[in-house]
Amino acid sequence: MLWIKTFHILAMTSWMAGIFYLPRIFVHYVEGREAGQDVARLEIMAGKLYGFMTIMAIFTLGLGTWLWLGYGFSGGWLHAKLTFVLLLIGYHVWCRQYLQKLRAGTLNRSGRYFRLFNELPLLIFIPILIFVVVKPF
Rank of each mutant, 00 (worst) to 15 (best):
W3H: 14
W3N: 15
F7M: 13
F7T: 13
F7A: 02
H8F: 02
I9W: 14
M12R: 01
M12D: 00
T13C: 04
W15P: 00
W15Q: 01
W15Y: 02
M16D: 08
G18D: 08
F20K: 00
F20G: 04
F20N: 01
Y21E: 05
L22P: 02
P23N: 15
R24I: 07
I25F: 06
I25R: 11
V27W: 01
H28L: 05
H28I: 05
Y29P: 15
E31M: 12
E31F: 08
G32F: 08
E34M: 13
A35R: 03
A35Y: 05
G36I: 12
D38G: 04
V39L: 15
V39A: 05
R41V: 09
R41K: 13
E43Q: 11
E43D: 15
I44F: 07
M45R: 09
M45K: 07
A46P: 07
G47A: 08
K48I: 15
Y50L: 11
G51T: 01
M53C: 12
I55L: 06
A57N: 05
A57F: 02
T60L: 03
G62R: 11
L63P: 01
L63V: 09
G64S: 05
L67K: 00
L69T: 15
L69K: 09
Y71M: 11
Y71A: 14
Y71N: 05
F73H: 14
F73I: 09
S74Y: 08
G75F: 12
G75I: 09
W77L: 02
H79M: 03
H79V: 09
A80N: 05
T83Y: 09
T83H: 13
F84D: 00
L86W: 07
L86K: 02
L87P: 10
L87Y: 02
L88N: 04
L88G: 06
W94R: 08
Y98A: 09
G105K: 01
T106Q: 07
L107P: 04
R109S: 01
R109C: 11
R109Q: 15
G111P: 02
F114Y: 12
F114P: 13
F114V: 12
R115V: 03
L116E: 03
L116P: 04
F117T: 00
L120W: 06
L120Y: 10
L120D: 01
P121L: 00
I130M: 04
F131K: 00
V132A: 15
V132M: 12
V133C: 07
V133R: 11
P136V: 15
P136Q: 09
P136A: 06
F137D: 13
F137N: 10
